[in-house]
């Protein structure tokens, strides 16, 4: 089903399932009262629902309104009529098509689909970066025997990574690696397709969302990890 059909169908099923169609909106303003973005550049969740209620899906897709949302979900949690507003906003984002996706996110998604991470970082470079950090860690007292597990099979936990940790904040990797080492945990990073931040969630593109999930599941199957640590 495309988003128009989803939005106008009487059984809107977002990621949570259930809920009621936008038509049922009372116009009560609970969502607008709850939303941290109400008033910023004219944003108001009621507007979005109203456009949906009136069947003006194209307009909804074309406008920038849907992209101002932080996806915090307060509106959806509070809505007395059980309209899945956050889900609706996500659908609206998809409606607009790729041309409406903000550039940074769009680029990141493109990178992800190609390379398995939002930065477009080749696996080899990834390897160098994390190994560098691991080496630095071994120079600290108590962690001389630290070995970074990458693509280790049969580990208990598979970790995904926020791309920032491989980019500008890679020092922060050390903090949790220390904990895991001290605890004697059995864990591993995937050597490729390590991205933890699934921007398909923000872009409204279900196929991207699915691709991200597929990647993680694929890694888990490949490495036979028993559990997943998904910090994002």
């Amino acid at each position: 089903m495309n988003s128009t059909e989803v939005l106008s169908h009487t059984d809107l099923s977002g990621p949570g399932g259930g809920g009621n169609p936008a038509q049922i909106c009372l116009g009560c303003g609970t969502c607008a009262s709850a939303c941290p973005m109400t008033g910023i550049e004219g944003f108001d969740p009621r507007r979005i629902v109203r456009l949906g209620q009136l069947g003006r899906f194209e307009e909804l897709g074309e406008s920038s309104l849907a992209w101002l949302c932080t996806m915090c979900g307060r509106c959806q949690e509070g809505c007395p009529m059980d309209v899945r507003i956050t889900d609706m906003i996500r659908e609206a984002r998809d409606l607009g098509g790729e041309k409406t996706v903000p550039q940074a996110i769009g680029k990141g998604i493109e990178m992800f689909m190609e390379t398995g991470n939002n930065l477009g970082l080749p696996d080899e470079d990834f390897g160098f970066i994390v190994e560098d950090v691991a080496e630095e860690l071994t120079e600290e007292p108590g962690f001389e025997d630290f070995v970074l597990p990458v693509d280790k099979e049969d580990a208990r936990l598979l970790f995904t990574l926020h791309n920032k940790l491989v980019n500008t904040q890679n020092e922060d990797l050390k903090h949790w690696w220390k904990i895991l080492h001290a605890a004697g945990e059995s864990w591993t990073l995937p050597g490729s397709r390590w991205e933890g931040v699934n921007w398909g969630f923000f872009s409204g593109q279900d196929q991207v969302l699915k691709a991200g999930v597929d990647t993680i599941v694929g890694n888990m199957e490949r490495l036979r990890s028993r559990g997943l640590m998904y910090p994002e």
Binding site: G29, A32, T38, F43, D44, R47
Partner: peptide, 11 residues
């Protein structure tokens, strides 16, 4: 305190 939106885009 009661945050509310008495008119659209106005919290």
């Amino acid at each position: 305190r009661i945050p509310h939106a008495p008119s659209p885009g106005n919290q």
